[in-house]
Simulated assay, not measured.
Amino acid sequence: MPISQTSLDQLPIRRLTSDDLLACADLSEDRGWDREEHKWGLLLAAGTGYGVDDPDGKGLVTACVVTSYGPGLAAIGMVLVAERYARRGVGRRLMQHVLGEYDGTPLTLYATPNGQPLYEKLGFAEIGTSELLKGRFSFAEPASEAPAGTSVRPATAEDLQAILRLDREVFGVDRTHLITRLPAFADQLRVAERDGELTGFAAIWPNMDTHVVGPLIARDPATAQHLVTSLADATDRPLRTDVDSGHTALLTWLEANGVGRIFTTALMVRSVPGLPGDGSRRFAPLTVAAG
Rank of each mutant, 00 (worst) to 15 (best):
L275S: 04
V98N: 08
R270H: 04
A192W: 10
A224D: 14
M78T: 03
A25M: 03
D242I: 00
V288L: 15
K134N: 09
G196F: 05
S130A: 12
R219L: 15
R282T: 00
D174Q: 07
R240N: 01
I217Q: 15
A86K: 15
P285Y: 03
L133M: 14
Q188K: 13
M1I: 04
L178Y: 01
V170W: 10
D26L: 01
D20L: 02
P215Q: 08
P238Q: 00
Y110K: 01
G100M: 05
A162F: 00
V191W: 13
P276T: 02
A74M: 11
A222P: 05
G260E: 13
I262L: 11
R181K: 15
L11D: 11
C24F: 04
L44R: 09
V259S: 06
E126K: 11
L166W: 09
F139V: 01
G149F: 02
E141G: 00
V269I: 05
V66C: 05
G115N: 11
R35A: 12
P106M: 11
I217A: 10
L164K: 07
W33E: 05
L94G: 09
L189F: 15
R15I: 01
Y119L: 05
A256H: 09
E158R: 09
V269D: 08
V173K: 06
A234C: 07
E131T: 09
L44W: 14
G104K: 12
P55R: 14
G258E: 04
V173C: 09
A290K: 07
V79L: 12
E37N: 01
A157C: 00
W33L: 06
P154W: 07
I163K: 05
D53Y: 02
L16F: 02
L164Q: 08
Y69C: 10
Q161K: 03
A111W: 08
P71S: 12
Q10R: 13
L198K: 03
G274A: 10
